[in-house]
Nucleic acid binder design. Structure first.
Lengths: 195, 195
DNA sequence: GTCTATAGACTGATAGAC
DNA sequence: GTCTATCAGTCTATAGAC
């Protein structure tokens, strides 16, 4: 398993994605140059093309990895029994997961228009699958009679917007802990669906 | 009041802002060139600088005009009697106002990071003033005992995120009218604050 | 008020040396 | 695997003609 001197592919690859994530989140995809990313990693611009086909693919890979993480994490999240427990699990999971990776979340929401058409469609499909998870919970809750919602699809979108909104104002070390925030948001979610 | 041939300052100025608004919303501030804006208006790139100091000011002017419109429109909005009527008026106003100008809303949320520090501070101050309007309503509602909210500031942010979220999915001519959407969202707002 | 022309700098991506 | 050098194109903003 000896490795050539100067061979850092297993280190540089992740570093490229990390640097791109941070820079895209801060300045926006279009405003960041490949040279900036390279400088952050500590290589020359040309070297980046060993790790990504082009700038567009770099963005797409970041967004896809984020959505995959999200779906995989929700899949293994403990959900409790009954639709109401499911809903609570979803609300707390969503806030926790999103607060843990603000840069990726920011990019996933803000840079959709910088994706090529086919890349956009792929990310959009993953997003819909995630929304579908909440939608299914709400439908189950309605079937069980534990929630009231005149339009499930609309309630789905409203709740996700509300929960994701935490990322726009929450600051680490602020007035409230993540758990305290989640408690209050869960109360609001419950109220919004008449539970 | 005779006007020189070729003098279109009163027409071209607004057209520049309209074109910039549409293009920034579609492609993002950093991805749009002054040449693109000029082409949309029907002039050469150099002529744009008769109407804006630079690209940054163009963005700032659009965002400031949007926030000024928002605050002015809310100021003259009929609000009814009591905190609960106020809250309903705010929810319906917010949805209606934001759905009427999706491009400006999109830019006001997505392009904050492309503002210079002082321009950012100015826009942020206007945004806080708008948030303060809802916050005051919620505090009044709590004082009247008609709503329940463990943390007013947090409820403010949650409700604004939820209401603004309509813009991300609403499509003209879709399944629901604006009024029907507003009805359902008002129900959710009321539930979220325990009214 | 708008044009053309241009400055000076930056862009994404590639080729070839090591 | 990374570097240097470079291509061909883009960018914002300005100067000066009309």
């Amino acid at each position: 398993m000896a490795r050539k001197t100067g061979s850092h592919s297993d280190i540089t690859g992740p570093k490229v994605r990390e640097a791109a994530l941070a820079l895209f989140a801060q300045h926006g995809f279009a405003a960041v140059s490949m040279r900036q990313i390279a400088a952050e990693v500590g290589v020359q611009a040309g070297a980046l093309y060993l790790y990504t086909k082009d700038k567009q693919s770099l963005l797409y890979d970041l967004m896809q990895a984020h959505m995959d993480d999200l779906l995989a994490a929700w899949e293994v999240e403990p959900k409790g029994d009954g639709a109401l427990a499911h809903l609570e699990a979803f609300a707390r999971f969503h806030i926790r997961f999103h607060l843990e990776r603000p840069d990726a979340v920011f990019i996933a929401y803000m840079e959709l228009r910088n994706l090529s058409d086919e890349n956009f469609a792929a990310i959009e499909a993953l997003r819909r699958r995630y929304e579908g998870e909440l939608e299914a919970i709400l439908r189950a809750g309605q079937a069980e009679g534990v929630i009231t919602a005149p339009d499930i699809r609309l309630t789905t979108m409203a709740l996700i917007a509300m929960l994701t909104g935490v990322n726009t104002w929450y600051r680490e070390g602020g007035r409230l802990s993540r758990d305290a925030v989640a408690d209050i948001y869960w109360d609001m979610v419950r109220g919004a669906v008449g539970a």
